[in-house]
Simulated assay, not measured.
Amino acid sequence: MDHPHPHTAPTGDTPPDLVASDPVTLGIDIGGSHIKAALVAPDSALLTNYERITTPIGQPPAVIVDAISALIAPLGGFDRVSVGFPGATRGGTVLTAPNLGNLSWHGFKLADHLAARLRRPVRLANDATVQGLGAIAGRGLECTITLGTGMGFALFMDGQAAPHLELGQHVAFKKRSYDHFVGHDALLRDGLKKWNKHVLRTIDALRVLVNFDLMFIGGGNVSAIGFALPADVHLVSNETGITGGVRLWDGVVPRRG
């Protein structure tokens, strides 16, 4: 899928407010374990393979910005940038980064810093929100959870993302948050069988809390799920964490089916 793209290179002089009629989106997925990036067509099809690096946990935001700049260099030209971030964001600013291990993320204007570095307009959202935008049907009440370093969560009504909720930081069982109940450390600590029971319990709890029409589960540990899923719960591939970035520019996901 390594196709060259004729649009302006990211180091060009195109003003960030001028976007092509068939814009190519650079999708960036910042995770607690890895940072991934690829180019995405307007119809959400991948134009390139992933570029991927290990997330420099504990480092200040400037190191992440530098790492992203180096990561995307082989991808070629793009017109705009969508970023999924593992924490709460608002207006292009990071509010929380619970799994990145550095408090200097709080209040960091990540979208502005990346726009200045890449010379392209940037939109930023929680990573579960971006993944959900790449997966949801666009009708009714839908939600996404991501199972990776922690647990991400996003909620949608008729294709429109709701305000972000840091459900991963909420208490799930006794004093354990969802991050520590179904996150990666829980999988290592509790073992596969017990972890699967915790995931099923989480689905049941969210069914009561949200009354969702559909739930989508993604993230790096989705392959560890070993139980039969209810009919209204679906697994999605990790590429939706990249391809969903196109929808950040559309506002509402078109209804499917």
Rank of each mutant, 00 (worst) to 15 (best):
G107M: 12
N211I: 06
L209N: 05
A205N: 12
V210A: 04
R119I: 07
A154Y: 02
L95H: 13
W195K: 07
G152S: 06
D158F: 10
V83L: 01
L110G: 00
H164P: 04
G140T: 08
E166G: 06
G91Y: 08
R123F: 09
L188T: 10
V210C: 09
A116Y: 03
G101E: 12
V171S: 10
N102L: 06
R119L: 13
L200F: 11
V182H: 06
L188C: 05
L188D: 10
R176Y: 11
L118W: 05
D190K: 03
G183E: 03
D204W: 06
G101D: 14
N196Y: 02
S177M: 11
K193H: 14
Q131Y: 03
K194C: 09
L118H: 02
A172N: 11
G101K: 10
S104H: 13
P121R: 08
N102V: 08
A111E: 05
N196G: 05
S177D: 10
A186C: 14
L206T: 07
K194H: 13
Y178V: 13
T144V: 15
F173C: 11
L192H: 15
I136Y: 02
I136S: 08
G107N: 11
T93P: 00
L155R: 15
D127K: 03
F85R: 07
A111W: 01
L103C: 04
H113L: 04
L141Y: 11
K194S: 07
G101W: 11
G101Y: 12
A111P: 08
G132P: 04
G101N: 13
R90W: 04
Q160K: 12
D204E: 15
V122L: 01
H164V: 07
A186K: 05
V130W: 01
N126H: 09
Q131P: 00
H106V: 13
L200Q: 15
L206G: 13
V171Y: 11
H198T: 03
V199C: 07
A186T: 11
L118M: 09
G138C: 07
D190V: 01
R120F: 01
L114F: 02
T144E: 04
K193T: 15
G148Y: 01
K197D: 15
G140V: 12
K109I: 00
D190T: 01
R201N: 09
H164N: 12
S104P: 04
L110I: 02
N211C: 14
G152P: 03
A186N: 06
L188M: 10
L187T: 05
H164Y: 14
R201V: 02
L114I: 02
G148A: 03
V171I: 15
N211H: 15
D112K: 04
R90T: 11
L155D: 05
V208L: 15
R207S: 13
P163A: 09
V210T: 08
D204Q: 14
K109H: 13
L155T: 04
